[in-house]
Design a protein around this nucleic acid. Structure first.
Length: 488
RNA sequence: GGUCCCAUCGUCUAGUGGUUAGGACAUCAGGUUUUCAUCCUGAAAACAGGGGUUCAAUUCCCCUUGGGACUACCA
């Protein structure tokens, strides 16, 4: 069965690029009828962040990315499911040590006693000589006796992989096809750190093997270390999984997407009020497309259409403009009730969730929303009285002067008063009377409608006069116009 | 510096040995009887350069250029 995995390290939040990798792996697994495993790569205790794993799980599941095996949340408690656990690398140190020993025994690895200082110096020297910085294999030639005695003396040591230099390392990447590397350019990677923890390279290969991973779908940044992993599989005599290195997400300047140049945490986008369907659709299309001109895809539809063969080779700039557009689209697809549910938690003024007036106000702003976070500001005028602003009111472009405004206010109050409160709720009943009024007064529509809109909303930009009138209702509308009139 | 990867409108991309090089976002213009937005219509906008191969290259090959990743006892 095709089995893949998402293996983040718990550094605090879910990187948006990580989310896309997870999505692609998930889509692949579901499409193939295979499995996807969540594994936590927490072998670097220096980078341990409290609550990061919980956060990772929550965020992934918010997006609807579900795992067949691995850690999950039951209430606030982290549990694990599946037969190939544990799924935290920190709980698997014995397995790694055991396998490192195997490598040692079979001559595929060696102890290294070099100090960080020596390593540093060596690299600096190599840089100076314009040589590639690589471990010089000093400790590779130590005799077993020497190793034994230094170990027994308690000297700090790491275990290094011994890359066989005699044959080319080749593999076929699902996205990039044939890849080959000259082994002499590949560094003898540290496998076990001096404190006994494995590095990514060892843990990753060992886990992928024992967890039955058939397809490794990961970011392109791993491409250069893949030959090290291949060498490890070969040293163990294990079957090599299929690799698929997906292109990077880029900053505007084409560098790897980073914190410095904007938000990189998936949570940031959730908090800004991007919808899950918009984020998913957007990131799926960064580096992949179905080959048709359709552009809106639900998670289900993505699963149906996804194919690694159609994943792009080049990196994709993470361009928010398109995300905004997707988000606007999905926002407009929501029912008013759904949208109200999403907006309600963000409201900082006094509103009742099921108040018809609130629902109405949400309906009015729906086509104007691109992100949920904008909703409270857009909604505010419905719930707080606008203040008088002469500068906004007297719009030269609309040919609104004090005189026309005064006239517009007086006469429209009269006109509106004639409409029943019930009829008032349908904007269709409002249009004709006000338009007729304009004609009667020999004013342009804008000379009536602009001042009214300003009096009603107090905003430079807002929904249309009729919409607002109907939404506010007769009483509030007339009251607001009246109050503006008294200011003139 | 070394290894590796990549290269179609500003951006995300489709595409083929012979196409008016298609779509979407963004931009601009117009329309939808007030602003903003939605919606509709239209415009502008790309095959990095140089060599080959070929009757024919955007497409295949090579080089150059440009960009990027990696180069830790991080992942």
């Amino acid at each position: 069965m095709p089995t893949t995995r998402f293996a983040p390290s718990p550094t605090g939040y879910l990187h948006i690029g990580g989310l896309r990798t997870a999505l692609f792996a998930y889509l692949f697994a579901r499409k193939q009828g295979g499995k996807i495993i969540l594994r936590i790569e927490d072998t670097d205790q220096k980078r341990y962040v409290q609550g990061a794993t919980e956060n990772l799980i929550k965020t992934l599941s918010w997006f609807g990315i579900e795992f067949d095996e691995g850690p999950y949340l039951e209430g606030e408690e982290i549990k694990e499911k599946g037969e190939n656990g544990p799924y935290f690398q920190s709980k698997r140190t014995e397995i790694y040590k055991e396998h490192a020993q195997k490598l040692l025994d079979e001559g595929h690895a060696y102890y290294c006693f070099c100090t960080p200082e020596r390593l540093q110096e060596m690299r600096e020297q190599q840089q100076k000589e314009k040589k590639p910085p690589m471990y010089d294999r000093k400790c590779c030639s130590l005799t077993p006796e020497e190793v034994k005695s230094r170990l027994e003396a308690g000297e700090r040591a790491v275990i290094r992989q011994k890359i066989p230099h005699d044959k080319l390392i080749e593999f076929t990447d699902s996205i990039r096809d044939e890849m080959s590397f000259d082994p002499k350019t590949i560094d003898d990677q540290v496998l076990i750190k001096s404190e006994g923890f494995p590095t990514y390279h060892l843990a990753n290969v060992v886990d992928d093997h024992f967890m039955g991973i058939t397809h490794v779908i990961r970011g392109e940044e791993w491409l250069p270390s893949t030959p090290k992993h291949i060498a490890l599989y070969q040293a163990f005599g294990w079957e090599i999984p299929q690799f698929a290195h997906i292109p990077l997400l880029l900053n505007l300047d084409k560098s790897k997407l980073s914190k410095r140049q904007g938000d990189v945490a998936a949570e940031d986008y959730i908090n800004k009020g991007y919808l899950r369907e918009a984020i998913l659709n957007f990131i799926a299309f960064l580096g992949w497309n179905p080959g048709t001109e359709e552009e809106f895809f639900s998670l289900e539809q993505l699963i149906e259409k996804f194919d690694l063969k159609r994943v792009q080779k080049a990196g994709a700039i993470f361009n928010l403009e398109k995300l905004d557009w997707f988000n606007g689209h999905y926002l407009r697809e929501k029912s008013v009730a759904e949208l109200a549910d999403l907006v309600f938690p963000l409201i900082d003024f006094d509103v009742k969730k099921d108040d018809p007036y609130f629902l109405k106000s949400v309906e009015v702003i729906q086509t104007r929303l691109t992100k949920l976070e904008e909703a409270p500001e857009m909604l505010r005028f419905f719930f707080t009285e606008p203040s008088y602003e002469e500068e906004l009111l007297l719009n030269p472009k609309m040919k609104v002067t004090k005189e026309t405004a005064k006239l517009a206010f007086q006469k429209s109050i009269e006109t509106l008063e004639k409409i029943s409160a019930e009829d008032f709720e349908d904007e269709e009943n409002l249009k004709q009377p006000l338009l007729d009024l304009a004609k009667e007064l020999e004013l342009k529509n804008g000379q009536i409608l602009w001042p009214l809109r300003v009096a009603l909303t107090g905003e430079k930009y807002s929904p249309g006069t009729f919409e607002v009138l109907a939404a506010l209702g007769k009483e509030k509308s007339v009251e607001r116009i009246q109050s503006y009139l008294t200011n003139l």
